[in-house]
Design a protein around this nucleic acid. Sequence first.
DNA 1: TGTACATCAGTGAACGCGCGTTCACTGATGTAC
DNA 2: TGTACATCAGTGAACGCGCGTTCACTGATGTAC
Lengths: 223, 223
Amino acid sequence: MTEHATAEAKPEASGTPVTPRRRRAPRGQGELLREEILEATERLLIATGDQDAVSIRAVAEAVGVTSPSIYLHFADKMELIFAVCERHFQRFDEIQEAAAAAAPDPVQGLMERGRAYIKFGLENPEQYRILFMTKPAQTPESWTFERVIGSVAFEHLVAAVAECIEFLKLDPPPDAQMVAITLWSMVHGLTSLLLNHPKFPWPDRDALIEDVLTMPIQGLLPR
Amino acid sequence: MTEHATAEAKPEASGTPVTPRRRRAPRGQGELLREEILEATERLLIATGDQDAVSIRAVAEAVGVTSPSIYLHFADKMELIFAVCERHFQRFDEIQEAAAAAAPDPVQGLMERGRAYIKFGLENPEQYRILFMTKPAQTPESWTFERVIGSVAFEHLVAAVAECIEFLKLDPPPDAQMVAITLWSMVHGLTSLLLNHPKFPWPDRDALIEDVLTMPIQGLLPR
DNA sequence: TGTACATCAGTGAACGCGCGTTCACTGATGTAC
DNA sequence: TGTACATCAGTGAACGCGCGTTCACTGATGTAC
């Protein structure tokens, strides 16, 4: 299997491929390990596509460190997993904002936002699953929805919808929050179905996305 | 805890509440156990709200039988869990069909279908999760989407959409399958968000459901 | 009416696994005097 | 320039858990002769 650079036998199960042991961080640089742990966790999360398949032990192995070291930086496994997601939440919001900003008008901006949303989900399935498809019981206490998602991407969406309503001079103006949730349901619904049911005989994916995005927005337009 | 009818000590961990041992089925009636197992599994699934929390051992304990007995009727755990769901799929479809049948016209039928869908999901969260929110890797080979979901509820939905298109004399007629998927995305999206994020500051639930159902159907109507 | 045998519905005990987490410790590096 | 000490980034070994699953078996019940 792996070559032995030294004559020493590994104490662990001998068949396991072994990552070279990481060099100990210099004094005062302990935080470096935190960053490496996050990156390794993210890689494993993407590779395995399953948060349960990512164990503390596997993360430690990937970093080249023993498992108790993880606990120098994260209180428990859940905190680690969610710390990885925090980064994705930010990117998720940024991507949508950027997509919307490039559009010529608010309505098209809304469409672009939706496209970006779906694209993100399809390209980052496991992160998307953790962010939006984790059941409440598995979510740590500190992750109230208001704080984590609501405060950024969702509020941006509500604002974008409000802009549309104004732009279209809708009368009477629908409730922006209500519309935002409806749109969110749409894109989330499609994203999660596509992720969960790859064997379903889907029609052409891009055409489907366009249809799904168009239909509710059509419903919004003045008649 | 539990009273001891006999003086015998239980061989198992003494703190555990113990279900009385089930009477052995008479000759030729082995299949009775299968039914009891399915019922117990379903109860546990609902009680715990988590398919991982339902263990073979727990099911056996609930039935009043030892765990190897489960294997007399199910090849493995996954088969058991999904067997429970099969029953729900059927009920799920039936409920939607019944709701649609009671409506005065196809468009309202579509709305009723949507309401019934969401209601089912909210009332049977764990089953809904297993049916529609299980990641592909966890789904047994035999559960191709075409066979299990596609063949019933989804095809009924496509047919209902086609009826609407005809009823409304839409010209040009949109693709029924495409529209069906869009509607499915909507209701699934809302259902799963409501299930997964109970802490989100949702507006009035019923009003929200109406909005979500109305918007895409508005988009469908002739202008 | 009796008995050997087959069948069937289970049991009891164990295997082996991988996991999250804890605990007491080590040994390199910097710092104070 | 030397040395005692504190600090810090880790390590190694183990605990205890619950799980899915397997294996050899038991003992009640029916059946053939």
